[in-house]
Write a protein that binds this DNA or RNA. Sequence first.
DNA 1: AAACCCTACCCTCACGTCAGGGTAGGGTTC
DNA 2: GAACCCTACCCTGACGTGAGGGTAGGGTTT
Lengths: 164, 164
Amino acid sequence: MDEDRNRAEDASGSGNGSGSGGKGGHMQIGEVAARTELSLRTIRHYEETGLVVPSARSRGGFRLYTERDVARLMVVRRMKPLGFTLDQMRELLDATDRLDADGPYDDPGDGTTGGRPALLALVRGYERSAAEQVDRLRVQLARAEEFAHDLRTRLDAQAGLAGG
Amino acid sequence: MDEDRNRAEDASGSGNGSGSGGKGGHMQIGEVAARTELSLRTIRHYEETGLVVPSARSRGGFRLYTERDVARLMVVRRMKPLGFTLDQMRELLDATDRLDADGPYDDPGDGTTGGRPALLALVRGYERSAAEQVDRLRVQLARAEEFAHDLRTRLDAQAGLAGG
DNA sequence: AAACCCTACCCTCACGTCAGGGTAGGGTTC
DNA sequence: GAACCCTACCCTGACGTGAGGGTAGGGTTT
């Protein structure tokens, strides 16, 4: 019922002796949530959209995540503030995965996503818009600071009126 | 049809000699959009939620904004990155408006929102969470920069492989 | 008549929240 | 030692929300 109330906070999976199978293999969603600081709902949502799909499921259907999965989630967490959609993140993650996997070898390509040049172009595009978004974030931060400062100043003035 | 396509960019209202009635009085939404860099839809949405209601309407129903309205929109634009809801912004704006309006005089209060002390407490609360949100923004910016940097580094590595 | 505006409505995205049910693993009772 | 229970954790829908975007169809201003 109210289990999702105790979201990432409580769900560290260290309650009883179970430990969900040991860190070496895979962990279940609660531990992942604790480590990534993402909510259970968010992590499940990322699976729904195909962004981060757990490497395995238990017989009972529990999501089982590997360290790689967690790493991917961490990447997503970093990307989030850049304002990409989940679909875009998926595209980018898949592209970099393939680049890393194929490594220095010549990419045979499977016809579905284009070869190395196409992947590189795609990633470069994302790099550009990432840089732009960082700039925008900086502007927003500046505006926010400006606002916070204004607010403080006004409060001080009002306090002065009240105190004097 | 595609009127919202030419959002803030095109709708500067300075095309013909009209100027929508002279800047001294009030301007209509297109000019406001141009000046605030907010979309028409956004400005209308702010009215729907009671956040920034235009001071007047033309006989035909056009929204007419004053400089004060525009100033209020600018404040909203600054607050946006802090992640407040529109309702919260409205509450805060109304509170500061009242504080400014009542100025140094003793506030008689109208019983609906509490007197000066209540208003001040409210604004102080917002100031605190504004400061917190600024911190969060900084964290996000840091993460985003980290990500952008990673991406660049990876791309360089890939380019090296391709070029070598 | 061109440029601008209006309302009303539906759409999107990234989750939050609610409701009901299943699993994992251990303890208790007979 | 089998049946039962307990707690903590997990699951799948389905609906709600916040902040707008977009479109349709029509009115207004100049």
